[in-house]
């Protein structure tokens, strides 16, 4: 029985009830099973099953089980995997427009970032990302980025001077951190714990979920809630899969996904509250950063650089 493979796109069985074809879709993403993106995928699975009367089921492969994000995209493009939640950080290396989400201090909080996905600019991003082999459907937001340090909270960029901060190796994020005067240090996440502990790095640009799940509160105690960047993933669908579905089935997929993502953002907002509560219990020194003007000159340089892209320019104009 181990030898049989579930049909994805090409091979599908006619359902006994005769309402239409049956499908077992595959979805993959990089985060662990407790992450919001995984829960959103689970919700998507439930919705698919309910809306299709059980004709559509979803196998979920979390934690990068099917490979790196580069691998995921390729599997989606070739149609062996049907869906993926791929980080904006990875996709921004492929499509410039997506750097719009990484413009510093543009979105006040998670809700503001989530609201921005209704704008024409966000729609343009999805369009730029879609091609002959995949289609970008929507954004799902992880928590906004904050700053965790081992030696004090931040009240202005002055306190970042010369500090070694671990950042994700994406150009726009890098550019912002270079401008602050800090020393942005790329480093894989599993190395961060010991590096913070021994002092290889002084802090990290991170969201609260990752802070909690990597237990970084054990070794770094000063958290500044800056909300300096949004951090979405993009829900991607294989073009092959989509083309093989009927109009009605496409509508079911779209509706299920929209419901799941809407559920996901509410879940994420609640998580932010719970995470903060938890981190306070852990005795973290947490401050709300509200001196945003202090970063104005830094932001201006980054905005200027990325404004060459028309979509990014108009999203900056809209939210600045």
């Amino acid at each position: 029985a181990c030898g049989s493979s579930e049909g994805t796109t090409g091979e599908s069985n006619t359902e006994a009830a005769g309402e239409g074809e049956s499908y077992t879709f595959k979805l993959t993403h990089i985060t662990g099973p407790s992450h919001n993106w995984h829960q959103t995928a689970e919700k998507f699975s439930e919705e698919l099953e309910a809306l299709s009367n059980g004709r559509m089921t979803l196998e979920i492969f979390p934690s990068g089980q099917l490979g790196s994000e580069g691998d995921m995209i390729q599997q989606i493009e070739t149609g062996t995997v049907d869906f993926g939640f791929i980080t904006n950080a990875y996709l921004s290396t492929r499509v410039d427009t997506l750097n719009g989400w990484f413009m510093p201090f543009l979105f006040e909080d998670l809700e503001a970032a989530n609201a921005a996905k209704g704008t024409p600019e966000a729609k343009q991003m999805l369009e730029d990302l879609s091609n002959d082999s995949m289609i970008a459907l929507d954004f799902a937001f992880a928590g906004n980025r904050h700053i965790l340090m081992t030696d004090g909270t931040i009240s202005s960029p002055d306190e970042l001077q010369g500090k070694r901060i671990r950042v994700i190796g994406s150009p726009a994020i890098q550019d912002f951190w270079v401008e602050t005067g800090a020393s942005p240090t790329p480093m894989p996440l599993p190395e961060v714990y010991t590096s913070l502990q021994t002092g290889v790095i002084d802090g990290i640009d991170i969201d609260l979920d990752a802070l909690v799940s990597n237990a970084l509160y054990e070794i770094a105690h000063d958290l500044t809630l800056t909300n300096h960047m949004a951090f979405p993933s993009v829900a991607i669908m294989s073009r092959q899969t989509r083309d093989s579905l009927s109009e009605e089935d496409i509508a079911i997929v779209d509706e299920a996904l929209a419901t799941a993502i809407e559920w996901g953002i509410q879940d994420q907002i609640q998580r932010e509250i719970d995470n903060l509560e938890y981190l306070k219990e852990q005795g973290l020194n947490i401050i709300d950063f509200n001196n945003t003007n202090a970063f104005d000159s830094i932001n201006a340089v980054v905005y200027e650089k990325y404004s060459e892209n028309e979509t990014i320019r108009s999203i900056i104009e809209a939210y600045k």
């Binding site: 580069g70 950080a89 290396t93 002959d132 190796g169 150009p171 890098q174 790329p186």
Partner: peptide, 17 residues
């Protein structure tokens, strides 16, 4: 030679993948 190879760049250096 698949078309998606050429659009990929590395995350730090922006080197063609």
């Amino acid at each position: 030679v698949s078309p998606s190879i050429l659009v990929q760049r590395s995350s730090a250096m922006q080197l063609p993948m």
